[in-house]
Design a protein around this nucleic acid. Structure first.
Lengths: 232, 232
DNA sequence: TAGTGGTCTAGACCACTGT
DNA sequence: CAGTGGTCTAGACCACTAA
């Protein structure tokens, strides 16, 4: 039952109570919660109010709900790990043919990728990052990366067209060692990388591609690679 | 106006339309959207339906809304950056007195922290990570970290009590160089670190401490420090 | 005081799932 | 078929903000 005089909205009280019961394990991962109609009786509120509470838990990623199936406590899963140590070193590249493949291999999974290549003029932010004039041509590689068939990562690479012209970087398949290997062959020795890591809620497109349930954030990694001579 | 025959729920159509207008800049960051009553007229749906759409955008972190203020497009902000390069090196530690202070310093901000120390028996997961027997005593340091007064990070450290007994690690203020410096002084030379990075939605407690708006995820970093001799 | 978003109800219909 | 969650409405009252 909710406390109508506390000033705390009823749906929040319901949500908090369910959250608590999930936290202490009264509702374990994979377990089905009482139906919304049952919760209506238990807490003495209307169906919409219960639904609003369930909705909140869904946005937080705590539960999933499907018609006919009921409300289920979500188990947490990790699909893939990025192993950072020497992840982008030349040695690792030569041996495994790319960091993504290596990450998957350490888990015994089968990686695959769908690649598209296109060219577009650099907008202001891209131009600044790559230190090229605004509007100059940029090679864009779009990748949808899968392990065992499920999409786990979306990647977009942008390079100054000058660096990629005539190289396999402009082909969907860049060959052994990937883009970085081709750049080095073309005389652009790699120096350092700077990665920015963030997290945000996915766009609807990303959510459907990555098959994310509500309330599951994505991690963003923005990497700028610098040549040995300092050019991005 | 929404398309009633498309099968797509009305509130999703409204949300998608607003999302689109935000994406193309028709509603710029900081700008106020039309009021819910106006949206009701514009899309030809009920107030609850509009509210549901606005709710979804809030869960995604796209907008904020307050009574009297209206619905406002949220600007994205970065409060603090962790600079990874040599972040945990002995040199950095001696110079700046801890990674957190260094991160804040690079932005010209004033860091502060509130620290609590307690001791508890190791539960299974902690015992495994620290390679100590389950139930053995563990030193726990809870930190609430602020820059310029606002909470930006919550940290919990756990160490085998054996390593900390009689050292300043058991005091709230560990002194210059922090915990790692004290451990090295006590003869526990540091070897390597392994950090696991993840992202999830905050718990309500975290959300209020960090003053997070709805739809803003937190980044989790789990670091295990290993001594030169390999003990965690 | 007028306008804003926040909450809540009662009731309705729908699509989906399992038996 | 019964039960489930998903959607939607019309209408109500509230607390808050700004003029």
């Amino acid at each position: 039952m909710v406390d109508r005089s506390s000033g705390v909205p009823a749906y929040r009280q319901v949500a908090e109570d369910l959250r608590e019961k999930i936290a202490v394990g009264e509702y374990a991962p994979g377990v089905q919660l009482p139906s919304e109609r049952e919760l209506v009786d238990a807490y003495g509120v209307s169906e919409s109010t219960v639904h609003e509470a369930v909705n909140a838990l869904q946005s937080e990623g705590l539960v999933t709900s499907e018609p006919g199936h009921g409300i289920v406590v979500r188990p947490s899963t990790i699909v893939l790990e990025r192993v950072a140590a020497a992840r982008l070193s030349r040695a690792a590249r030569e041996q495994d043919g790319g960091a993504f493949r290596a990450d998957a291999a350490t888990r015994g999974l089968t990686p695959s990728a769908e690649v598209g290549v296109r060219f577009e003029p650099a907008v202001a932010r891209v131009a600044a990052r790559l230190a090229v004039p605004e509007g100059s041509e940029v090679t864009v590689r779009d990748r949808v990366m899968r392990v065992d068939g499920v999409v786990v990562q979306l990647a977009v690479s942008r390079l100054p067209r000058e660096l990629t012209r005539g190289t396999a970087v402009e082909n969907p398949d860049t060959g052994p060692g990937g883009t970085y290997a081709r750049l080095e062959e073309a005389g652009h020795a790699l120096g350092s990388f700077i990665e920015h890591v963030g997290a945000r809620m996915p766009t609807p497109d990303e959510a459907s591609l990555l098959q994310l349930a509500d309330g599951v954030p994505v991690i963003t990694v923005t990497r700028v690679a610098y040549g040995a001579d300092g050019t991005p």
